[in-house]
Design a protein around this nucleic acid. Sequence first.
DNA 1: ATGAGTCAGTTTGGTTTTCCAACTGATTAG
DNA 2: CTAATCAGTTGGAAAACCAAACTGACTCAT
Lengths: 143, 143
Amino acid sequence: MTPATAPRECSVAAALEVIGEKWSLLVVRELILGTDKFNDIAANTGAPRDILTARLRRLEELGVIEREEYSSRPPRYSYVLTKKGRDLRPVVMALKHWGDTHVMGRTMPPVYEHSCGEIFTPATHCAACGEKAGGATLTRINP
Amino acid sequence: MTPATAPRECSVAAALEVIGEKWSLLVVRELILGTDKFNDIAANTGAPRDILTARLRRLEELGVIEREEYSSRPPRYSYVLTKKGRDLRPVVMALKHWGDTHVMGRTMPPVYEHSCGEIFTPATHCAACGEKAGGATLTRINP
DNA sequence: ATGAGTCAGTTTGGTTTTCCAACTGATTAG
DNA sequence: CTAATCAGTTGGAAAACCAAACTGACTCAT
């Protein structure tokens, strides 16, 4: 009997479980951009209000965002990212970059000129000693 | 009259338009991992077969994946990422990292020791002159 | 104090997706 | 001939989604 293979256990799937629903990541984008009021989030994302309510509740439940009461009569809340939520920034940025280069026409990542006059190419150095850091100069010291 | 504000035009939203549907990103994950047959993708993601068919068609249409015929009688196809699709790797990785640290228990990003003996903190230098590069030393030279 | 407007939702009722299990049809393996 | 593999289809029910209207507690300008 084939053991009816279960789907791969994977943190990508786990992450999508949390922020993979429609609108969730756009809500996070808005919060990153500083929008914190229900109506503004609704307008800027385009999400239906009832769905937005559901997403905000779920994201709060899962610790991605927090509600702050900014008025008590009537009770009014604003929404803020927690650390867990702020840590989604790289995800949103990666998505933005992909969208820029592959969906919008806007190709071309930014090009900079260093004060030395050359086109800037980044090189990673050790902040402590200033020397160039690369494969052999680095040793992983935690599991 | 309020001008009925339209949702924010944004490459994050544009990207999600393409790979934001349920299962799409898990399909990409599987293709990144090298799974290329319909049945395997179905099993590893857990996606219903009809939905998977729809996603594969759409991702092909949008140029994220390609079908390759690997048998002609009966016609059988395998799926491969295009460049556009491979460029989603950072997105999947960012998601994986977030999932690892915030959804699964597995915290702790890797910590390295530089050959100088200090815990490694990266500093970005100009590859041409070797000097430290930061805000004021960089000038953007393209739109 | 009346009426208009703001804000954060909730309700309604209809449309669209998703889901699952079973089925098809072509082909190869035993 | 029979069973198994593979890549889908099909049908029907359950869940999610949607737009627009509505609530209720307020504020502000007349």
